[in-house]
Simulated assay, not measured.
Amino acid sequence: MGLFDKLTAKLASMGIDHAAVLAGQLGPEDAFVATAGVLPAAYGRGGGGRLLNGTQIAMKAVDAATNAVSGKKHVGGDADSIAAALPREGELRYAALSARGLSLWDFGLNGQQDPPTFVLRITGEQVRSVVDTGKRAQGGAVVVRFTFTDGSFFDYRVLPNGQQFITACAERWPA
């Protein structure tokens, strides 16, 4: 069982109802539709820290190369595009589909923080399509491509229990 599998199993067994919490956060004027746990498909690898020896320098170079290749594959658009503004940290967030569009929420390190922290909103008018790419990532996560009206795109890994979210998004913004 890989780390992603362990994380998914742990979150599934915990008591918080992410959908109910997000419905309450969005309120009646922004009707909640569906939610799913998401991770960027092209999250930034590596970090800061001191460079003490040749191995660390080599690892930084490998991380930079991996970030560049993964970024080109899973994130597209100009530097000022919608996709470029989305966070690429490798942190689990929850995407919520609502009447107004999409929003991203942080439920904390263990996915149980209530209330969650609001991260960002993308209005429905800014989304062109949401498509299941047919690819699966570690742990069975579905790789879903969000394409925006400015021509940019961003791929998210949607946790295996997020099929209702994927379906609702694809119905609202078909390819």
Rank of each mutant, 00 (worst) to 15 (best):
49 G>H: 04
144 V>P: 07
120 L>N: 09
54 G>E: 15
127 V>I: 15
161 N>E: 13
55 T>C: 06
50 R>E: 09
126 Q>T: 11
145 R>Y: 00
173 W>C: 01
63 D>K: 00
90 G>R: 10
104 L>Q: 08
50 R>V: 12
120 L>M: 15
161 N>S: 12
132 D>C: 07
12 A>T: 09
144 V>K: 08
130 V>G: 06
79 A>D: 03
122 I>E: 05
168 A>H: 07
60 K>N: 14
56 Q>I: 12
62 V>Q: 12
161 N>D: 14
95 A>T: 01
94 Y>N: 13
165 F>M: 11
32 F>R: 04
151 G>V: 00
135 K>V: 09
145 R>I: 03
134 G>N: 09
4 F>N: 11
168 A>E: 12
4 F>W: 08
168 A>G: 10
26 L>K: 04
125 E>S: 14
71 G>K: 00
57 I>C: 01
137 A>L: 14
114 D>R: 05
131 V>P: 01
104 L>F: 13
110 N>E: 10
28 P>N: 08
77 G>L: 04
120 L>S: 10
59 M>R: 15
59 M>Y: 06
74 H>T: 03
93 R>H: 13
70 S>L: 15
8 T>M: 04
70 S>Y: 05
154 F>N: 07
113 Q>P: 02
82 I>W: 00
19 A>V: 01
63 D>Q: 05
159 L>Q: 06
115 P>M: 14
170 A>G: 13
126 Q>R: 15
142 V>K: 14
95 A>Y: 00
172 R>C: 08
80 D>M: 05
150 D>T: 06
25 Q>W: 02
46 G>L: 14
55 T>N: 10
39 L>M: 15
164 Q>C: 00
101 G>N: 07
51 L>Q: 11
112 Q>C: 06
61 A>M: 07
123 T>H: 10
114 D>K: 12
164 Q>E: 15
5 D>A: 15
41 A>W: 01
91 E>F: 07
111 G>A: 03
155 D>N: 13
167 T>E: 11
48 G>F: 11
66 T>E: 12
95 A>K: 05
17 D>A: 09
2 G>K: 04
112 Q>T: 14
123 T>Q: 06
135 K>Q: 11
94 Y>I: 14
7 L>A: 11
42 A>L: 02
86 L>E: 07
72 K>L: 11
